[in-house]
Amino acid sequence: MIDIQISDKPLDISSCIDWVMSPDCGGIDVFIGTVRNATKGKEVTRLEFEAYRQMALNEMQKIAEQALEKWPVQKLLIHHRTGVLQVGEVPVIIAVAAAHRAAAFDACRYTIDTLKETVPIWKREVFEDGEVWVAAHP
């Protein structure tokens, strides 16, 4: 089973874990992305996330389907935030449940690594003295 969401409201970590819990799963792996207070030593005041919503949902669905093909995983959830996030807030949650932990770890890592490469979502880091679209320039 797969649950993919993009939301401009705060993400709920415990409800994500509840969704993947299953009697036939002995391992749950959760990745929580959080807004860090600095980049390369420079203080970050907030992040702004923008999504190409339908394509981003499609791309996340593809990643989840690939993960379920590659590993014996029962449930996989991806929730991503958009809008303005303060330091400590949660832009992304990935939760994976599998019968055994190895598959859950591997599928979770694959999901976040691939999301960062292919899903059309962008973040802008805002500093005291300016702002930058992350990864835009070489």
Binding site: A51, M55, H80, I112, V119, I121, W122, V134, A136
Partner: peptide
């Protein structure tokens, strides 16, 4: 049609 600059989600 859309222009997709380098993505940076997560």
């Amino acid at each position: 049609i859309a222009i997709i600059p380098p993505v940076s989600g997560g």
